[in-house]
Simulated assay, not measured.
Amino acid sequence: MEGAYSDKYSFIGEWYDNQACLIRRFNVFYYPVDNTLEMYDLKNRKTFVRRVKVNGINLENFYIGCTLSILGRLIKIIDFACEDTRKLLHKDVQVTFAMIKPMATNIVGKIITHLYDHGLRISKMKKARLTAEDIHVLYRSLVGDSTFPFLLEHLSGQLVYGMELVGKEAVSNCIKMLGDRDPLKAEPGTIRALYGIDSVRNCVHAASSPEGALQDIEYFFPPPPIRATRLRLTATLSNCTLCIVKPHAVREGKLGTALEIIDEGGFDVTALNMFIVEMDNAAEFYEVYKGIVQEYKGMVEELASGPCVAMEIVAKDKSVVTAVEFRKLVGPADPEIARLLRPHTLRAKLGKTKVQNAIHCSDLDVDGLLEVEYFFKILDL
């Protein structure tokens, strides 16, 4: 942010306290000088969290509507707490909606990397199947256009990736990055010029205004009661395994590369959702490693440290056991060992340490389905 700087930014955050079944409100303060956070309980009028550094959280993570994992609690930022913060940040950080149309997973990966490299971060994402009704809502501005019947035909019943993107002037930046609706007229180097075919099969749809973006985000990512009926997750629960791109790898912009490697390694991504996993759920998920793996505590903390991307993976070759084959593509738990022995694996290419090894995958064949169900059925509720 050019020239704009403050000794502290202040926001209003909400936390749903499961045990007390009530929403607690806080002032959340962020200090850029040393990347620390502090929380003040508004009802009880006292400090709730003393000034502390939280891994993976910096100023970029703060925008209205975001959810932050602060010491195992999911805090939703609902407003600015002071005019200065509003003035400094409101203009800069914006959200937009984009949807990647049906295409090969490796191209999806390239598009995601392109967005990240040009300053747009994914804050919500899921794979869903479109109905005619969804298409009418998401393309409401084009309903009378001559291309609309072709769009309807191209997208009805098809799997797409919806995304909430965050960044500086996200709406106009995203449109610029995509290029002209007709790939033949798009500027060289734009996403549609690189990967588009025609004005219907042009890779990505994006919101055209900040207001439209908020409507699309609300439609594509509905609250829990509606989630069961609209744009549901697409898990098949058949000869599948679970893959999680861990929070550090998502923050570092490695999701796109992971998707490319998965596709080229012989696997389909049949379901995908971005989750923020609470600390107790992360501990429950990794319970099998408790007392067995030295890194257990670190693994739990990493999984709960921010958004991760969970995927249901299915081998393209229907005669193999997906969990067994996918584990080979993921590689040894320690990325250093992976780089020596299995340099072509996901962890060798994307991992840093045994805890921050970029990817979780189901260890045992029988766990594949159970772990997919945990993420795509239990956690989604």
Score class of each variant (00 low, 15 high):
L178N: 10
F220C: 15
I337P: 04
G157Y: 08
Y5Q: 02
I261V: 15
M125S: 09
C308H: 08
D363P: 01
A282P: 06
L259W: 12
R25H: 12
P247Q: 01
V33G: 07
I77L: 09
E284H: 11
R86M: 15
K246P: 00
D134P: 00
K127D: 03
L242Q: 04
A4E: 11
E301N: 14
T47L: 11
L37T: 10
E38W: 11
E260K: 13
R227A: 15
D17S: 09
E38P: 03
I175R: 15
G157P: 12
F29R: 09
Q158V: 00
G306N: 03
P223R: 01
K43M: 12
A207C: 14
S146E: 11
E373Y: 04
I12W: 01
E301D: 15
L184P: 00
G162Q: 01
A132W: 01
A358H: 10
T241A: 06
Q19H: 12
G3Y: 10
C203L: 04
D263Q: 02
I261H: 07
Y286V: 02
R181A: 12
H248A: 01
H154C: 02
I378T: 10
N61P: 00
R347S: 13
I23M: 15
N27G: 01
V160Q: 11
L379N: 04
F376Q: 06
C82D: 15
S362R: 02
S305N: 03
D263E: 09
I378L: 08
G253P: 11
A249N: 05
G306W: 07
D198A: 04
L194N: 05
P224R: 15
P149A: 06
G144M: 06
K352H: 10
D34L: 05
L68I: 01
A128E: 13
C174N: 14
L68F: 03
L155R: 05
R140M: 06
K254M: 11
S10Y: 02
C361V: 14
E287H: 12
S305K: 02
I12N: 01
N106R: 08
K53Y: 13
V324G: 04
R327G: 11
G306P: 08
M274C: 04
N273V: 03
T190N: 07
A235P: 05
S123T: 15
I70N: 07
M163Q: 07
L68R: 00
L369C: 06
P225Q: 02
N281P: 01
G298L: 05
T113H: 02
M125G: 05
H118P: 09
L350H: 10
L59I: 15
D365H: 05
S69F: 05
T257R: 15
K297E: 15
T190Q: 12
F376Y: 13
L329V: 13
K246I: 02
A206L: 06
W15L: 07
G3K: 06
A283M: 06
Y289N: 09
I262F: 07
Q215Y: 11
S141R: 10
V330P: 09
I70S: 08
E133H: 09
L151P: 00
V28K: 02
D92K: 03
E373P: 03
F326H: 07
A310F: 09
Y296E: 11
F26M: 14
R140W: 15
T113L: 02
E153W: 04
A170N: 09
